[in-house]
């Protein structure tokens, strides 16, 4: 009953405006994130470089992709670690 009255009075919370904005936001995240394989590779290489300062990883096995669910788009990285660098503490301290 109340729902009906709210709708008649134009105060429906599920207004189509909000709907439109939310859908648009999501579709744009995806549009803007549909980056070229070239860029994805660059990102991968950069990640490998940074992570390698701290651990040794299986570069060949590394996976990087965008996942979309109803609410958001996330960058998913699956990076198998071979070994944690023992010297990373010392190295950080030196650089400090």
């Amino acid at each position: 009953m109340w729902e009906f009255i709210f709708r008649v009075l134009g105060r429906d919370n599920s207004s189509s405006r909000k709907h439109a904005k939310e859908r648009l936001r999501l579709v744009l995240v995806h549009d803007r994130a549909s980056i070229s394989p070239y860029l994805m590779n660059r990102l991968k290489e950069d990640l490998i470089q940074v992570i390698s300062n701290y651990m040794i990883i299986e570069e060949e096995e590394m996976e990087l992709h965008l996942n979309q669910n109803d609410r958001e788009v996330v960058l998913v990285a699956n990076i198998p670690i071979k070994q944690i660098r023992r010297d990373y503490m010392e190295r950080t301290q030196i650089s400090l």
Partner: peptide, 16 residues
């Protein structure tokens, strides 16, 4: 329509 929540308004679009 904007007032009744049935159209995106200026702010929504500029924001996006």
């Amino acid at each position: 329509m904007v007032k009744h929540g049935d159209m995106m308004d200026i702010e929504d679009i500029v924001d996006i």
